[in-house]
Amino acid sequence: MRGTDRDAAFSEFVAARQTHLRRIAYALCGDWHRADDLLQTALTKLYVAWPRIRHEGGEEAYCRQIMVRANIDESRRPWRRERPTDRLPERGADGPTPVEERSALFDALQALPEQQRKVVVLRHWLGLSVRETATELGINEGTVKSHSSRGLAALEQVLAPQRR
């Protein structure tokens, strides 16, 4: 595949799917800037592997798998790579969604243990099967089932009082 073909096809995919993929990353890490970093990591790896992944299909699944697996390692490192500067940016960066705008569900999701959170996102938001969830996370199906049930039970504890 020539470089220009790769760039064109890759750009088309990114333009179409980056919003959706970043929402997944946001659900996994709870911070828009970290979500951007996570998505960029996945897209960079996708670009490198593009000829093979394009041939096999499943570009989105490939990105998603990188994000759900990479998040563990990334969270062990400081996310913000801030450097002092004497120049202010021309335009203020958009901040994260204000706390009051975030739903109780989302906060409860972020409070779940990491693996439970990932299972809930993949299985109950994106609608992956038990098997697909297990494959993407690299864990056994039984583990997916137990995380799913515990994760939902925890969310239900938070959400049930709101309905009363």
Binding site: T19, R22, R23, Y26, D94, T97, L105, F106, L109, W125
Partner: peptide
Amino acid sequence: RFDQATSGGPSH
């Protein structure tokens, strides 16, 4: 609920 909670965000 997930759809709404993850909408928005800064520009790409």
